[in-house]
Design a protein around this nucleic acid. Sequence first.
DNA 1: CGGTGTGAACGTCTTCACAGCT
DNA 2: AGCTGTGAAGACGTTCACACCG
Lengths: 252, 252
Amino acid sequence: MTLRSHAGSSARAGGASRTAAKLARSIPEATVARLAVYLRILGELAEQGADTVSSEELAAATGVNSAKLRKDLSYVGSYGIRGVGYEVVPLHHEIERTLGLDQKQAVALIGVGNLGHALAGYGGFGGRGFPVTAMFDVDPDIVGIRINGILVDHVRDISAVCAARGVTIGMIATPGSAAQAVCDQLVDAGVECILNFAPVVLQVPDRVEVRKVDLAVELQILAFHVARRRVAGTDGSEPAKGATNGSVVLPR
Amino acid sequence: MTLRSHAGSSARAGGASRTAAKLARSIPEATVARLAVYLRILGELAEQGADTVSSEELAAATGVNSAKLRKDLSYVGSYGIRGVGYEVVPLHHEIERTLGLDQKQAVALIGVGNLGHALAGYGGFGGRGFPVTAMFDVDPDIVGIRINGILVDHVRDISAVCAARGVTIGMIATPGSAAQAVCDQLVDAGVECILNFAPVVLQVPDRVEVRKVDLAVELQILAFHVARRRVAGTDGSEPAKGATNGSVVLPR
DNA sequence: CGGTGTGAACGTCTTCACAGCT
DNA sequence: AGCTGTGAAGACGTTCACACCG
């Protein structure tokens, strides 16, 4: 079986999308990530009773430029009214459908240590269509307890439990040393999407999608920017409105 | 003061890099993120006593293709030996210097709830040049306790304490409703880099760099891929080795 | 010969600018 | 008149392929 490895902070590695490329509309990965952000703001606007938003307003609230926002929304369809803006509720609904959030995804959490506890308690999951449906650990003090009503099972039962409960997404929050073995079991259970918090590059078959969240990497990227400012900065010169290239000046 | 907002999952919004663009070497943001990954693997290789690695080997271990890896490394300088590979220790050292990791960064953590606790206990920080030097919360049960030897202060003292301890990076792990106020105080204290875990788009002055880690967004992106497979997938057709465009086929 | 370093080609994402609808 | 939707242009990042060096 061909293996594909995954790296980078929150990076995708590639995959499908050759089949039937012309038949269906195709959405850039970058757009998908932003749609999720628009969705949250639209939800807030709906709660506040707003009927419509202009691309300019929604762009300001989500921190993107309005042309990009309009192009992003054009991928989900034409839900705007020219001269007026977008209808909040229909647009919200349509983005949800586009992201596939109308079907709930059962999530498994592996590793119930510090981070795992935090993830288990994170309200943004269950409340937003991602009920944590299974939990696993190896620590005998943790296996058998209940968190949010979910029994923590032993890691050795990952395949059986995940398959039985129809888990579609796995979150790995184990130490790095255990991550690959846990990942292999998830793959055995048929899980095809994995969110990896462990600081290792997982090897998975081509059909499995891995996203990585690497806290140390995030800090290192910020450290780079701090260092850059130390030398290049201090001059107070504004980078000119709208300067948005991703490059950066080296410390030396 | 001009405000700039930040959105997206782990996204940068733009900024500097117009000044002296030709004078210093310029590193793409995407490369910076990967350098941090190479660094970790190089550390492991060094521990195992490896002297040299080829681009092919290091690429396999970090999950990127070898051409990209060589190009990335060319930004830090020529530390490879043709016909042999890269010397592990000198390369490791040089990447550290390039990322600015030779100078330790004092980190402040705001919000010591579930996630905050996990972040405080995360070994990858202190051990890797990012000592958590200050912690803040509003909960009277938490203010005053010590975690890893660090006293948790009240959020109202953010500016004073951060300025006094030379904090350069702030991590916001508060509920969304508190995040902007906390962020404003960090900015007042002179902090210019912020890692935001709260599900809000922070408004900051141009000089401040924000990175966002949004767990709900990560899951939504994966959900999108699950939904995509449900319709387009199931055909088992391999996407052809090396297919790596970021596009994706819509559920409908 | 083997593997790095890099110009050039390619593809993707972003921005611009305006036609066209309400 | 105002704002969306989108082709076209531009910037950026990735991949290719090979010259060059050890």
